[in-house]
């Protein structure tokens, strides 16, 4: 291997996905993941954690079988230290600590939300974008200002992915609801009346889910899905346009699990056009949680020397995007 870039192992496990990847620089050397689907209802933190504990050894084995070199060539172990579900974070941290001790390699604690941003900055041409991060657990407008990633706007209650999933459940669509709602929405024709809640650059979806649920008795699933997407995505679009207009960043990056929604991509593309900005989106296979993004963000931490001793590696379930010191962007 000619590259002198460090080789990083990334472990993702904040909620229902166990992700393991090995990267070098901007190269993905191996990437495996497994996602827990609850038999019914939403994600139970303990059940998800049990699932992660079962999956990590399997995924690690697969990864090391694929690689052309021995594990001791790895230069750092990056893991999702937060934010997320406590039991899941603790399981992932335990795996990361064990590998770090065994290989005697530095441990790197990555903020999950920032990892989604760094993934986009690594594999798309976006350099200093306004980021719309949309997933099952988070919905934030993030940008780099005065030495940190700042949250310009965000959901004041539940995330967009969570809203889609819980509406999907009420309509008996399988989990996760998002992709099923996207499909159903394509058949929808009638726009039903829903509230439109925007508060500057922030928004809230919980009331919209309640309003949409009330329509279930009298309207078709496809019309409800169509209307719900039109309203919620319009709100995300408006908040994005406002943030773009305020910050004059010149580019938008769409990232996170819900970034795989093609209709949302098209809408945000139009927002970028309105503000004469460039549009970037992460590839579909890396939109959801994965080990690659953790490893990319971990590379920055290793380079800036932000290594955490095992003793200080406790998980941070409520770790906010704007609490992270960002030493790798000047």
């Amino acid at each position: 291997m000619a590259s002198t870039e460090p080789i990083i192992l990334g472990l993702e496990g904040t909620a229902h996905t166990a992700g393991v990847a090995v990267i070098q620089g901007t190269q993905i050397l191996a990437n495996e993941s497994a996602t827990y689907f609850p038999p019914q209802g939403g994600i139970h933190p303990r059940e998800a954690a049990t699932y992660l504990a079962k999956q990590f050894p399997i995924l690690l084995k697969k990864i090391f079988q694929k690689l052309q070199f021995k594990p001791d060539k790895i230069d750092g172990i990056a893991f999702s230290q937060g934010p997320g579900l406590g039991p899941c974070l603790r399981t992932t941290a335990t795996v990361a600590r064990a590998i770090s001790l065994k290989l005697n390699k530095p441990l790197l604690g990555v903020n999950h939300c920032i990892a989604h941003v760094e993934l986009g900055r690594t594999i798309t041409p976006a350099n200093d974008p306004l980021v719309l991060y949309v997933s099952g657990g988070n919905t934030q407008l993030i940008t780099f200002l005065n030495g940190r990633y700042r949250v310009l706007g965000e959901t004041l209650d539940i995330a967009i992915g969570n809203a889609l999933d819980s509406l999907g459940r009420e309509m008996n669509l399988p989990h996760p609801g998002g992709p099923h709602i996207e499909k159903q929405a394509q058949q929808g024709k009638n726009l039903l009346l829903l509230p439109y809640t925007i508060k500057g650059m922030s928004f809230s979806f919980s009331g919209m889910v309640t309003a949409a649920k009330k329509l279930i008795a009298n309207h078709s699933t496809s019309d409800i899905c169509y209307s719900f997407q039109e309203y919620t995505f319009a709100i995300l679009a408006e908040a994005t346009e406002r943030a773009l207009s305020c910050t004059k960043k010149g580019s938008v990056l769409l990232t996170g699990g819900v970034a795989a929604n093609v209709h949302l991509q098209n809408i945000i593309k139009l927002v970028a056009k309105e503000q004469e900005s460039l549009f970037y989106v992460v590839p579909r296979n890396l939109a959801g949680d994965n080990g690659v993004m953790i490893a990319f963000a971990g590379t920055h931490l290793l380079k800036t020397g932000e290594i955490i001793p095992i003793k200080k590696s406790q998980v941070k379930p409520r770790w906010r995007t704007d609490q992270v010191q960002v030493g790798w962007i000047s």
């Binding site: 408006e238 139009l270 309105e274």
Partner: peptide
């Protein structure tokens, strides 16, 4: 009018 909004939502807003 905003191209990214459904015309009915857009006009109302």
């Amino acid at each position: 009018p905003k191209s990214y909004r459904h015309p009915d939502i857009d006009n109302r807003i």
